[in-house]
């Protein structure tokens, strides 16, 4: 079964604000019955200052759908609707101390219900462009629809291309067969044939043109940017050494010895490469020890 955080379980077993709000002046219905998740959010909004006084939910769905609905109502109570619109699905997931990748869509559903309810209050029609496909890459939670669209829009031809554009397949690599199948299907639309030996397209990146000091500072800043993601999982990362294209880091806290450490390093590498606009390699602390002891430069 799923690895739900304590907070998710707590909100599932003791949901807050369950049921419809009486005399609600905003209602948002979202979800998909085929997927087994649907949510009705009702709000009582003070017309004078547009503050959400009460929020209630009714949810047909699994444990994390109910927990996400409960968290959403707790987050937005007392907010002005302008501030509430700034609540992201990541905020909902963070409030619950994280959700499994397969369940992130529950937090998306929460945010969408909120937008639908506020549109309803304002007398607008809320249109959703949401389309969700089967989860393909479990490391980065990328679904089939996103991969398909990205392949189509960018005329991608290889698994490596897909990883570069969407991150899908950039982790444990077990979804590569699935990505190849999607590539074959989308390429067939244009009468093309997927070639497993094709070489990935060049990604045009700006050259960094930074001085050494600027570059180090930039690396430090980029690591600071992703630090909150690691800390959310009770881990952390420390910059040890920069040696040309090799950047050595030490994983600490829960990240040290985690079986996902390689995936995490991959994620850090991608973030640094994108931020620096050059090809770099992120290596674990152990590699630095090896380098030092072998005397190699």
């Amino acid at each position: 079964m799923w690895d739900y955080s304590e907070t998710v379980q707590e909100h599932f077993f003791n949901p807050r604000n369950a049921g419809a709000v009486e005399n609600a002046n905003a209602t948002g219905d979202v979800g998909s019955l085929s997927c087994g998740d649907a949510l009705r959010l009702t709000l009582k909004i003070d017309k004078k200052n547009e503050v959400i006084i009460r929020a209630g939910f009714q949810t047909f769905g699994c444990g994390s759908a109910i927990a996400s609905s409960s968290a959403l109502t707790e987050i937005i109570k007392g907010m002005t609707i302008d501030n509430a619109l700034k609540v992201s699905n990541q905020d909902i997931a963070d409030y619950l101390d994280g959700l499994p990748p397969e369940k992130m869509h529950c937090s998306v559903m929460g945010r969408e219900a909120l937008h639908a309810a506020i549109a309803n209050y304002r007398g607008e029609v809320w249109q959703d462009d949401h389309e969700e496909g089967a989860l393909v890459c479990k490391c980065f939670a990328i679904d089939e629809v996103l991969i398909e669209e990205t392949i189509r829009e960018n005329a991608l031809k290889t698994v490596e291309d897909v990883s570069n554009f969407t991150k899908a397949g950039g982790g444990c690599s077990s979804c590569h067969e699935g990505i190849e199948n999607i590539l074959a299907r989308v390429m067939a639309e244009n009468g093309e044939k997927f070639d497993p030996n094709a070489v990935a397209g060049e990604i045009v990146k700006p050259t960094s043109g930074l001085t050494n000091i600027q570059r180090m500072k930039r690396i430090d800043a980029l690591i600071d940017e992703i630090r909150p993601n690691l800390q959310r999982d009770h881990g952390d990362v420390e910059l040890l050494e920069v040696d040309g294209k090799n950047i050595y880091v030490k994983m600490t806290g829960a990240c040290s010895g985690c079986h996902m450490a390689t995936t995490t390093l991959g994620g850090i590498q991608q973030h640094l490469a994108e931020g620096l606009g050059e090809f770099i390699q992120v290596l674990p602390a152990e590699a630095l020890v090896q380098r030092t002891s072998s005397g190699a430069q």
Partner: peptide
């Protein structure tokens, strides 16, 4: 009653 009309979520 008439559950499909009363509750028809946006992207069913």
């Amino acid at each position: 009653e008439d559950s499909e009309k009363v509750f028809s979520p946006n992207y069913a």
